[in-house]
Simulated scan of single mutants.
Amino acid sequence: MTPDELRALCLEFNDATEEFPFGPDTSVFKVAGKLFALSALDSEPLRVNLKCDPDEAVRLREEHPAITPGHHMNKRHWNTVTVGGLPAPMVRELVEDSYDLVVAGLPKAVRLRLDRP
């Protein structure tokens, strides 16, 4: 997966936006103003921080060397994923899971507007 493909994936979800609060080199992807993915898209190797259920986060880290505790994030709830170390469909699933976890914490009216009850 290329940086452009990762950006496109993060932006394909309802109400997803890309912002640069940490400077022009770090893309922050949000839904309804809440962070669900963070990446320096020009980094080598390409990595992305994604929100994850705490129990699932531990399991994923044990099974996949490309998944580590979230760099500069709450390590209980965030993973850093080395994109090239996983199959693209799995990266897609992890990004979608992160988006869904963030949406699940939004008010019901916002969730319904996003078609994610």
Rank of each mutant, 00 (worst) to 15 (best):
L41K: 03
P117L: 15
A109F: 08
D53T: 05
F36Q: 04
L35K: 02
D25R: 15
R59E: 12
F36Y: 05
P87W: 07
E19K: 12
P21H: 11
P54Q: 10
T2M: 09
D115V: 04
R7A: 14
L38F: 08
D55S: 11
L112E: 14
V48C: 05
E93I: 02
M1P: 04
F22E: 03
T17A: 12
R116W: 02
L35Y: 04
L41W: 02
R59S: 07
P24Q: 13
P65E: 15
L86K: 09
L106Q: 11
K108V: 13
K108G: 00
G85D: 07
D115H: 13
D97F: 04
K34S: 05
A109K: 15
P24K: 15
L106N: 04
R59M: 02
D55P: 00
V95T: 10
L101S: 06
R61V: 03
A57D: 00
T82F: 01
M1C: 01
G105H: 11
D100E: 11
D97I: 00
I67K: 11
L112Y: 12
V81D: 00
L86E: 09
P24W: 10
T68N: 03
N49M: 11
H72T: 09
R92S: 12
E19F: 01
L11S: 00
F22M: 06
A66P: 07
T2D: 13
P117Y: 09
E96S: 05
M90A: 06
D115A: 14
C52Q: 15
P69L: 09
T68C: 00
V58Y: 04
C52Y: 00
F36P: 00
R76S: 02
L6A: 10
G33V: 03
I67N: 02
P69W: 13
P87G: 06
R47P: 00
D4W: 01
M1H: 08
V58H: 06
Y99M: 05
G23D: 09
A104V: 00
A32F: 10
H64Y: 15
L38Q: 02
L9C: 08
K108H: 11
T2C: 01
G105N: 12
C52R: 12
L6I: 12
L38Y: 03
D4F: 03
Y99F: 14
P117S: 11
P65H: 13
A37I: 10
L114E: 03
D25L: 05
A66T: 08
L106P: 00
P21D: 07
P87H: 13
W78P: 00
K51F: 08
D4G: 07
P3Q: 14
P117E: 14
D100Y: 01
W78M: 02
V58M: 01
E56T: 09
V103G: 06
R7S: 08
V48A: 06
R76T: 13
K34A: 02
K75N: 05
E5K: 14
E96M: 08
G70K: 11
R92D: 09
S98C: 08
K51M: 04
A8D: 14
K51I: 06
L9Y: 04
F36I: 05
